[in-house]
Design a protein around this nucleic acid. Structure first.
Length: 858
DNA sequence: GCGGATCAC
DNA sequence: TATGGTGATCCGC
């Protein structure tokens, strides 16, 4: 830790001596051989998993600081003068909120747990003692602190520092009892006091002071004395100041068994705050302290104001506001609303293990504990978070939001198990479960009950095939092609207003022999981030002749799909009654997608929904999907059409394009207002616009990624190639089509990433995001509002990863297609499998991604 | 809404 | 031999 500064006993700067006290003598640590403590702690930690993790975290912090420095160095003087204006304005605004009319008192019990234990066992008095165990110490008494023993220190290290240390196990009921005694006292001074924890509280003593004509200091004396007698001997320290933030700082100054009063006048406050080290402020911890100190040279609260322009340039507005108000000595003065809990959790540490059965049983125990706690509190919640600490001390969390509120251990365990399985195999030393998003009594309805409005279909739409629908032509405004022309052109380049797309490669230009294609077909690709699965790198798709022929042979088949006898698909024989309008449309899509697929993967592929892995014939409809090894699968999504449909009667043929969206000016107006929040990546508060196709492509080039989009009528294909090797590393394909009254929908059939992706970009969102972004932007340019997909459920592990991946790039789960309901049947017929249907609002996706793509071009 | 981090006690 | 549990919040996806 830092060496204590020279301690001038300047009464107006008590924190300086306090600071000395803190490093040297706080809580009886005077005379501690800091060097020796430091050395022993280091010796005992060195090389351990814990230690390694600490090193990792430290490196991360250094990196953060370095990054902050770089950004700081890039700020121009005009940037700074701009932010200085922001600061000046903000200071005025904040200053206007300053309230010096309240008197706040912060009470903090001295070494509370240890003191209570000594109270109930006087023989401990005078002996070094710690509450806790060999793994962790909660509190140490003053005798122990002389040896350097401190709270949050592992017991085995403490014992090394102080071999005679007595360990007393924690006894919360006992502490709660004494805590209640203190609170009875607090209540006499402020019935609405805020209990921070068992051993500390904030009291607004303004009224008591006024009523009794006593100063804050006098009240503090009296209160502390009262606490001492009511608890039969416990001592506490107090701080008195105009707001809670300052009072908290003050209560630490003359600890233990002391108090400090800061007068309620502005200049006293400013003097007090000016040289106060930032670390003394609640909310500024080790990391923030380092970042501010090492990157910006801010060590004292005063410098928060002096360097305010840097803070506003480099941090979010809310962070900068906080820092600035700290620098001004401002803090909360109101009596806050009663805050209800927002989550409840249970977690346990154990000997690290990777044994699935052991972990399962741990998980079950924790689910049980959590459920019990919830029942005791009468809580129901719908978001479950699994927390893991790996053997290497890495913390992971995985969450799901459930359809219903629950507190049952069965529900919790069921979903927790899913989450856990998705992480295996992994060696774990801690499992935790947390529930949040509580139900409110007011809202009794099930939040999951999205309106599954089923519109009654009165008339079968006989036009199921998009072939006869001109609105699918992606380039309706110019040189519309006849069917014949389309065929001869094969996958024509998207006309594109983006020069970056000029280099679109026609399939004819590609050169891979059918032999190569067949060989490659055997190889299995790897997954995203090495975990998920993938399609092999360099797909068989690159065959020229085969593809061409395939295209020619496929597209002529795109005559309208016919429902024989009104209900039977003429292509595959599947039966769908006329009332299943949407399912029929999706089924039709399936055939089209399948053709596209065949065109790519060769003639050997079947063309019916009952083939390949999407196969889930009627006879298997209720059976569990076959488990496959992850590495045998593609990352494969199927985009569904929007589910909220109207009857054919209501149908309007949507214009192919929403022309409004083609107008850049109007497009801007449709955007959300620029964020006030000056986050690190926002440049000078300029309004953000959606990433254009050019933005995406430009940005991708910086990553050595060549993106191309090809279209054929409503179909599109996005390919991403490694700019250096020319190898394909990812692709997305699908179809754009109108949906009744809903405009156009982007139906993405597949997104695949190859093994090489890993080499190019370790980021999960890297190549996949770019490929997806081009597709989504394409959909946007076509006027689509919605995109949907099906994350195929092949195994717990794989499925969960897939869903998580799509969630991270912005899709949301719509429903589970599990095969358990009649409604699922149609989905299964269309998609040939079970899984999770997910969708996304295209505009939202672009907004969400804008930073990624706009950042890299500025 | 999710996941990682930070913070406090 | 060996480094906690609970809850909140913020930030960036």
């Amino acid at each position: 830790m830092d060496e204590g500064e020279s301690s001038t006993n300047n009464p107006s700067r008590p924190w300086e001596s306090y600071n000395t006290v803190f490093t040297n003598a706080k809580a009886g640590m005077e005379g501690v051989d800091k060097e020796k403590v430091q050395r022993i702690v280091y010796e005992m930690s060195k090389g351990s998993k814990y230690f390694q993790n600490e090193e990792r975290k430290e490196a991360l912090m250094k990196h953060k600081i370095e990054h902050m420095r770089e950004r700081c160095a890039k700020l121009s003087s005009s940037d700074l003068s701009h932010y200085q204006k922001v600061v000046d304005r903000r200071i005025l605004e904040l200053e206007a909120t300053r309230d010096l009319s309240r008197i706040w008192l912060h009470v903090d019990m001295d070494a509370f747990y240890a003191a209570v234990e000594t109270l109930s066992n006087p023989s401990l008095k005078g002996k070094p003692m710690a509450v806790g165990g060999l793994s962790m110490i909660s509190t140490a008494n003053y005798e122990a602190r002389k040896f350097g023993v401190r709270a949050a220190m592992p017991g085995f290290i403490a014992r090394k520092l102080c071999p005679d240390l007595i360990f007393v196990p924690v006894d919360f009921p006992k502490y709660t009892h004494y805590s209640d005694l203190t609170r009875k006292v607090f209540k006499n001074y402020d019935p609405n006091f805020i209990a921070g924890s068992l051993d500390e509280a904030y009291l607004d003593i303004t009224e008591v002071c006024r009523e009794r004509g006593l100063s804050g200091g006098e009240i503090a004396e009296e209160l502390r004395s009262s606490v001492h007698s009511e608890t039969e001997g416990l001592t506490c320290s107090a701080g008195v100041a105009a707001n809670r933030l300052l009072a908290k700082v003050c209560s630490d100054i003359n600890k233990p068994n002391g108090q400090f009063v800061l007068q309620n006048d502005r200049s006293t406050v400013m003097t007090f705050i000016s040289s106060l080290p930032i670390r003394k402020i609640g909310g500024i911890g080790k990391v923030t302290e380092h970042i501010l100190k090492d990157a910006l040279g801010i060590k004292t609260c005063e410098e928060m104001v002096l360097k305010g322009s840097l803070l506003y340039a480099l941090f979010t507005q809310s962070s900068a506001d906080f820092f600035l108000s700290v620098g001004l000595g401002l803090g909360k003065t109101d009596t806050p609303e009663v805050r209800s809990r927002k989550s409840i959790s249970s977690e346990r540490t154990f000997a690290a293990t990777g044994d699935e059965r052991l972990l399962s049983s741990k998980l079950a125990e924790i689910a049980e504990m959590l459920s019990d706690d919830m029942k005791k509190e009468g809580l129901m919640a719908r978001t479950l978070t699994l927390k893991l600490k790996t053997a290497s001390f890495e913390i992971r969390s995985r969450a799901v939001s459930l359809q219903r509120y629950t507190c049952s251990s069965e529900d919790i365990l069921k979903h927790a198990t899913k989450l856990l399985k998705a992480e295996l195999p992994v060696s774990i030393r801690l499992i935790g479960l947390r529930m949040s998003q509580f139900s409110e009594e007011i809202r009794h309805s099930d939040p999951s009950q999205g309106t599954i409005t089923k519109f009654i279909v009165q008339k079968d739409s006989s036009r199921q095939n998009m072939d006869d629908n001109d609105s699918f032509d992606l380039d309706a405004s110019k040189d519309r092609l006849s069917n014949d022309e389309r065929l001869s052109l094969s996958f024509a380049s998207h006309d594109t207003s983006y020069d970056q797309l000029k280099d679109v490669v026609e399939y004819e230009e590609q050169s891979v022999t059918p032999e190569q294609e067949c060989k490659k077909e055997e190889k299995r690709p790897q997954v995203l981030e090495g975990d998920a699965l993938l399609r092999k790198h360099k797909e068989c798709n690159s065959d020229t002749s085969a593809r061409k022929t395939e295209v020619v042979s496929v597209f002529p088949q795109m005559e309208p799909l016919v429902w024989v006898d009104g209900y039977k698909c003429n292509l595959c024989g599947i039966e769908l009654p006329p009332s299943f309008v949407e399912e029929r449309q999706e089924h039709s899509d399936f055939h089209l997608a399948q053709r596209l697929q065949n065109e790519e993967s060769g003639p050997s592929s079947s063309t019916t929904p009952t083939s390949k892995r999407r196969n889930l014939g009627k006879e298997k409809a209720n059976s569990k999907p076959k488990k496959q090894k992850p590495n045998q699968k593609d990352v494969n999504l199927s985009l569904l059409v929007d589910n909220n449909k109207k009857t054919s009667q209501c149908r309007e043929v949507a214009p192919f394009r929403d022309e409004r969206r083609r107008n850049p000016e109007e497009m801007k107006m449709a955007l959300p207002p620029p964020r006030l929040n000056l986050s690190p990546s926002s440049s000078l508060g300029e309004p953000r616009s959606l990433p254009s196709m050019s933005d995406i492509l430009t940005s991708s080039k910086a990553r050595k990624l060549d993106l191309k989009i090809q279209t054929l009528g409503p179909f599109f294909r996005v390919t991403g190639k490694n700019a250096d090797t020319g190898h394909e590393v990812g692709r997305a394909e699908g179809v754009v089509r109108p949906w009744f009254g809903r405009g156009l929908v982007l139906h993405l059939d597949t997104i695949r990433l190859t093994k090489e992706t890993m080499v190019m970009d370790k980021s999960l969102l890297g190549v996949g995001l770019y490929v997806g972004a081009v597709a989504i932007r394409h959909g946007y340019d076509c006027g689509c509002r919605t995109a949907q997909l099906l994350a195929i459920y092949d195994s717990d592990l794989y499925h969960s990863k897939l869903v998580r991946f799509y969630r991270r790039i912005g899709f949301e789960e719509v429903k589970e297609v599990s095969g358990s309901s009649i409604g699922d049947m149609a989905d299964m017929l269309v998609w040939g499998g079970v899984g999770t249907r997910m969708d996304a609002n295209i505009h939202h996706l672009l907004v969400k991604w804008s930073k990624v793509f706009l950042k890299s071009i500025t």
